[in-house]
Design a binder for these strands. Structure first.
Lengths: 103, 103
DNA sequence: CCCATGTGTAAGTTTATACTAACAGATGGA
DNA sequence: TCCATCTGTTAGTATAAACTTACACATGGG
């Protein structure tokens, strides 16, 4: 997962809101949807991006009533964005472009 | 300029490429367009976003031949993205939402 | 005068992202 | 059985971002 994709995933205010909410405590999908005020379908798209970028993780649990629930939690992460890290990221995806073009 | 807007501005691979190029040396618009391989019109949109977010700055100069040229250069910046900075950013734009709603 | 270089910008198209509505299935309790 | 809760997913729409094309204008040199 390159820096650009990670930043794209985290740049959205809605997804920041999700991270902030989960940083307070892990929650299952429906409860999170209520707290941030969005549909599960939409939340699903956002959490999918966050999970692919490594910001959150999910685990299937059984609640006390025996119902399956997906619990979401925040992963530890620490991104630094400056000239140096950007230069490195650009070198990385230029290398990837060369591989594709060389076939 | 909030964190979300800054991250949105810098998350694009094309804009990262522009920053990396300008980090090497300041350039005028047409020269930068040639190096990154895009039209001036498109470059204008990208540099506008980068300038609004504070990543680059521009200055109108006169070249040796007396032609007006806009020189672009990278500003110093250092963004940190973790649970703490995201939590702060979310508080900030929730406060803004309240101001709007209170009118 | 015309051409090459530089500047900015408006208008339209295309593509990606965000979002809504609707479906299908499971469990436990009244 | 029916209702409330939970899960996942598809298909369509609406909005935003990215990109192209084309214009207008300035300077210096052949």
């Amino acid at each position: 997962m390159d820096l650009s994709a990670q930043l794209t995933a985290v740049a959205s205010p809605q997804r920041m809101r999700i991270i902030a909410e989960l940083a307070h405590e892990p929650l299952h999908v429906s409860e999170l949807a209520r707290r941030v005020g969005m549909s599960r379908a939409l939340l699903y798209m956002h959490t999918k991006k966050l999970e692919e970028a490594g910001f959150i993780s999910s685990e299937l649990l059984l609640s006390d009533e025996g119902k399956a629930m997906r619990q979401l939690r925040v992963e530890d992460f620490h991104l630094i964005v400056n000239q140096e890290t950007i230069r490195q990221a650009v070198e990385t995806f230029q290398a990837l472009d060369n591989e594709e073009g060389a076939s």
